[in-house]
Amino acid sequence: MNLSSVLTLLQTALENGLALSVTVLALFLSYKMLNVCDLSTDGCFTLGAAVGAVVALSGHPWLSVLAAMGAGMASGLVTALLQTKMGVDSLLSGIIVNTGLYSVNMAVMGGASLLNLNRCETVFTRCRAFLEGSFLGGQYKLVVLTAAACLTVLFMSLFLRTRLGMAVRATGNNPDMVRSSSIDPSATTIIGLCIANSFTALSGCLLSQMNRSVTVDIGSGVVTIALASLLIGGVFIPRGRIPWRAAGCVLGAVIFRIVYAVALRFNMPAFMLKLISSVIVVLAIFLPYLKTVYPSIRKRFSRRSGRQA
């Protein structure tokens, strides 16, 4: 393997990782802060890609980003209303919205399961034109994606410092305490999920415009892949101030894609991506759990062997 092919491989991994990192940051908000496992993530990711593509195809590349985020916010609102106002269990409400979004996404894409963005203006083509001739000209994708990831980290860091952001964090931590602070935990859950889902949709929009196509299953498995990245990031930056942990999410996403790219290099078939992400999520949850139950398991075994002796 020569140097240039290694660099290409790293670049692709970095691009995919950065595009995904925006979803990872969304889960950082909903899963880590709000303590809600939002299973509508897959559908919302596709929704962002589909809405973004349709608006871009109609000739509004910048508007496509806003439209995607708005659509994501609406999807988050539905998920949140189901669980806070309609008595649907939080996991189930995510699954229900995810299922419903499949139809919505097909409708948005005009009944097609594939949209081609090869000939239309996207945020990437606009940025390429803008950077033409400068030293960054060849890296326009990385510029767009790095900016998106940095702005999302910045937004999360600032938002979670505000009183509203603190109320969202406290809702995941101790909803009773939120209530006794005269704040309605339903409201903070709704706000948190709306924000998180708008970033998930942004992430889908960016990935599809980078790849210049949208398929209706572009989001399938994204929730697991993003969770794996989130948990990998948590291994490197487990605690500390929120800006660092948010940056850790981006790091986790990039590391995940690099490891995946290396595995592909060693002839692992591409379809293994989702199994790997599932195994990583299981390990990341199981290993800390094992640490807590290990002492009692050890005791049980040593007692057993003692009886035999």
């Binding site: 009183r163 603190m166 109320a167 964090r169 406290a170 995941g172 931590n173 101790n174 009773d176 305490m177 939120v178 006794s180 602070s181 704040i183």
Partner: peptide, 17 residues
């Protein structure tokens, strides 16, 4: 444990209250 958010700092808890 009921009256405070354990994962947040003292000043953040107080700010919410």
């Amino acid at each position: 444990m009921k009256g405070t958010a354990p994962g947040m700092t003292i000043e953040e808890n107080m700010a919410l209250a």
